[in-house]
Design a binder for these strands. Structure first.
Lengths: 308, 308
DNA sequence: TCAAAAGTGTTATCCTTACACCCATGT
DNA sequence: ACATGGGTGTAAGGATAACACTTTTGA
């Protein structure tokens, strides 16, 4: 048990960085991988005087030939059982980064992959109803696979909430929870699968880390203008909408989306028009970078009193 | 620069845990400290097979004699300059935990402290206008303290947004940003202060970590029913409101707060009444723990299309 | 002419915010 | 009686969700 006092020796552990680098290209969400899509890029801490954030940033920018528009720490994974052969505990600090796709140099196994290759069930943009098929069957089998009636009910409730069954709405932010259920139900190969669900696995717990990154990003686009870091300098409103849809994994209402964007003054017209839209030419817009400084956050959600 | 490839040696670093343990007692927000309030509890990683989370939990529960209702990872601090004497980099994984106050056993330097001792300017429940006095003067001096006019404007804008000046609203979530400005302006002793602003410092970067914890909690109470982890089994609605106010650092609108609580079905009447309220006796309520399972999250904020 | 996308306008509903007022208890 | 807190009702304004329709291009 930890000592948690003033005097203690910090334990010696092995530490590494793991990066979830995201782009959106042609309306598809993409993630930078190594080892032919089997793992996320990772590396040791460097001992220089620079911060983790800073050195990770220069590394990524050198690899992708694009500035990293946005970056934040995701989570630190340190559970036992991650020791990867060595006897010491491995601590992995993961980061989420947003950029634009460009050919990667160096490592031949490195490249961009559609993130729905790893989570096909998270893409609900087409009404393919992936979840409704042999997918749900595996989950049902799992909920039934216990002698205790209370556990069965709990499991079923959990499945319903997380997978949007039984009057529950699909909540696109619950990726990690869904992945964890699939793991518990041993429907993913990483868990030593019984059955299997479509979707490519990754080495170690990288698919879990990717799920954490996607979840964070899906939550973030709702209250912070981070999509723009994934867009080219100018874009049409539909392109912007397609990018958000790619991340969220579901379709958006066109008119309301547009209203939302412009009543928040997020973009301004460039004056140019896009011609190859397939239909009527569209106005091109650019992100008003000023809003990053102007606006801090929006949400209140607490009934504050004005005066005080 | 990190290698971020498939093959790498994970670097060897010193690692520790740091805990921000919060309670609310008598309408005041409290944090568990050691060393007579000069530091947050911290400890080394243990080498057992248990997860960090689990061992931290048992430690805290043994110290506080109260179950840790809620716990989440906060942030991992790993910037250089944190080496604390040793030559290796120190990685600190911080956690936020919610509980109820009880006398701490063991370490005589350990105890609970009002968190506004460390951040007096974050308590806006009384209209004391702490920010308006000698406090703002130091900030103004800092914004002026550069030869470049553009920098001056930027600094002023930043101060205005973060401290709620010039038509900007005070945003209670920006604690960390405010602390960082005070640091840059060298108004806190940790920065090797020029001037000083009221508020006790802490060892190392612990005040910064505490600010991170408070910010997280202030954000969280808006969309997750975590306040209840800080409440006794039964409570009046005003007590509940006072707890939220303690965390948020600002006053809430009574009627609207009550409406909010009951239209979300967060609580149910116990049938008992509280008599020592100072006024009319109040109904006692308890948290409906079921909602943790029932509801997943609320917010949509994206204009989804229904059908798809 | 038709498909595809751009773009405009309007309506119903709900949630937030604010204000006004009455009730029950202890001192 | 009055201070303190408990508790109810309601109205205005804004944001959201949903629907219908016109315009402009390329094939």
């Amino acid at each position: 048990m930890p000592v948690l006092s003033a005097e203690h020796e910090a334990a010696s552990v092995a530490a590494e960085l793991i990066a979830v680098i995201v782009a959106v290209t042609g309306g598809q969400p993409r993630v930078l991988t190594i080892d032919k899509g089997r793992a996320l890029p990772s590396g040791p801490f460097e001992s220089s005087e620079r911060s983790l954030q800073a050195s990770l940033r220069t590394w990524v920018e050198r690899q992708t030939h694009h500035p990293l528009g946005y970056m934040e720490q995701l989570y630190t994974f340190a559970d036992p059982g991650r020791t990867g052969g060595s006897d010491r505990r491995i601590v992995s600090v993961s980061y989420l980064g947003l950029t634009q796709e460009a050919p990667v140099s160096g490592d031949p196994g490195a490249g961009w992959r559609d993130w729905y290759r790893f989570f096909p069930w998270e893409d609900r943009r087409k009404p393919s109803s992936l979840v409704d098929d042999h997918f749900t069957q595996g989950l049902i089998t799992w909920t039934e696979d216990t002698s205790d009636a209370a556990t069965r009910r709990q499991r079923w409730r959990r499945v319903a909430i997380n997978f949007g069954l039984e009057n529950e709405r699909w909540n696109e932010e619950l990726i990690l929870q869904r992945y964890e259920i699939l793991w518990e139900a041993r429907l993913v190969p990483e868990a030593g699968a019984n059955g299997t669900v479509p979707g490519e696995p990754m080495a170690h717990d990288h698919r879990r880390i990717l799920a954490t990154g996607i979840a964070r990003l899906r939550a973030k686009i709702k209250y912070r203008p981070v999509v723009f870091e994934l867009m080219p300098p100018s874009f049409t409103l539909l392109q912007l909408q397609r990018a958000v849809e790619a991340l969220a994994g579901s379709l958006l209402h066109k008119q309301n989306f547009r209203r939302l964007i412009d009543q928040q003054d997020l973009v301004e017209e460039t004056g140019e028009m896009a011609t190859e839209t397939g239909g009527r030419p569209a106005k091109l817009f650019r992100f008003r970078r000023e809003v990053l400084a102007e606006r801090s956050v929006v949400g209140s959600k607490l009934p504050l009193v004005r005066s005080a």
